[in-house]
Nucleic acid binder design. Structure first.
Lengths: 232, 232
DNA sequence: TGTACATCAGTGAACGCGCGTTCACTGATGTAC
DNA sequence: TGTACATCAGTGAACGCGCGTTCACTGATGTAC
């Protein structure tokens, strides 16, 4: 009784999706700060006030786009890792595969990537619903490192004593059972991965790096080394 | 005869500075995409059309802000490195000092940092004048690594053969004389440094990293290791 | 199965607002003789 | 030193535009009896 719904409900689902799709297109054209309900409605051939039947405000629409983006990016990373895992790849190759999936997704959806990992949209503050989807990529990386750790194939990165308690807290909170030094390195690697992708996407590599794929793969491998994953 | 100018010229310099200062304040309040000449003029008690005596368009004002931001950030990094150098610090400590200066500047000027290293402003494309100032931070990092290299205290990071030509080209173009493997690692470290700063600034570390200073310093040290700088 | 009523998607006009840019103008500052 | 003219900063009105959101409405779909 959940599968077949009335025409109204099916229409609602379809129109909601159409609005989000069009909003993503506008996002690419204008950027998040200038995303406008009126432009979305215009493009869909609707009157602007009609959108209020689907989203109570512009910010709610933005939130929906953010959640979708995190989910889509997270799914891409999960799938890439699962494929590598199924093919019997060692942790280091799974790590690189996941990183490459993040980059590929970002290149395909640059404005959605900017929406979640770029500068915050002024005047907008993300609600709590975005936290869960936001952690999917991180969880993939944690999973890979955990596999290496449990297979006793993880080197311990250095950790200054002053950072011990903080790293211990992070480990307890996000990656129970992993050594604090590894968790600290993981968090840094996650930010550094985003830095590599952002620089390429936001044009900072223009005139600097030409062979971006090969460069990125190499850098991802270095990140893997940084969190303690063995070379083979 | 260059020092004492007429009242008009002095006024022009002062008003230009006042406009940029106010624009920076508006930037912090609204973000770059929504920076508006009218709001700047209003805040300054001028009429909006008066600004056109100083900047031919909104985009030219944005360009001026970008160049100022790159220059200010570059100067901060240069000064931090110069201080560490003068105090006899080894390359690794100079590297960390420069990274910390970048982070400190970013925390003090979050919206200017976002302007240059965040998502691109939609509809705006930076002109060529921004290239020079943009490279100052990179040049500081290159200088530190070069000092270590010339002091024969640099370890060679790994470099996959496939990346040899690309790394060689980058070395020839930006850091003549340094080993290609080091230059490739440098470029990656530069992007990764920005990733660490951006994550902290853009809220990605909220609920994840608490002791941000200590965490950053540790991560900067790891970056130093990644480019081959020796531990002491 | 048919009818009366409730629900809800979408309309169109209106609200008050802000934007970048142009233009003819005024009046003060600077310059040439 | 004084005068006539040129330069230029700043004014105020106007252009045409887009925005988010509200509200009373119409007409189609769904539901209860």
């Amino acid at each position: 009784m959940n599968t077949v719904r009335g025409a109204r409900e099916r229409a609602r689902i379809e129109v909601t999706a159409a609005i989000k799709d069009e909003a993503r297109r506008r996002l690419a054209a204008e950027g998040a700060a200038k995303l406008s309900l009126r432009a979305v409605a215009r493009e869909l051939g609707m009157v602007s006030s009609a959108l209020y039947r689907y989203f109570p405000s512009r910010d709610e629409l933005l939130t929906a786009l953010i959640i979708d983006a995190y989910d889509s990016l997270g799914a891409a990373a999960e799938q890439a890792d699962a494929r590598a895992h199924a093919a019997g790849a060692p942790p280091r190759d799974r790590w690189i595969a996941a990183c490459e999936a993040v980059r590929a997704w970002a290149l395909e959806h640059p404005h959605e990537y900017a929406l979640v990992y770029g500068s915050p949209v002024p005047g907008y503050s993300a609600p709590a619903d975005t936290i869960g989807p936001a952690s999917r990529v991180g969880n993939v990386l944690i999973g890979i490192v955990r596999a290496a750790f449990e297979g006793r194939g993880l080197a311990l990165p250095p950790l200054p004593p002053a950072l011990g308690p903080e790293a211990g807290r992070m480990a307890a909170e996000f990656a129970e059972g992993l050594p604090p030094a590894v968790v600290a390195a993981l968090v840094a690697a996650w930010a550094q991965l985003a830095g590599l992708v952002s620089f390429e996407l936001f044009g900072q590599f223009q005139g600097v790096v030409e062979e971006r794929s090969a460069f990125f793969t190499h850098a991802a491998g270095q990140l893997a080394h940084g969190v303690g994953l063995p070379a083979v």
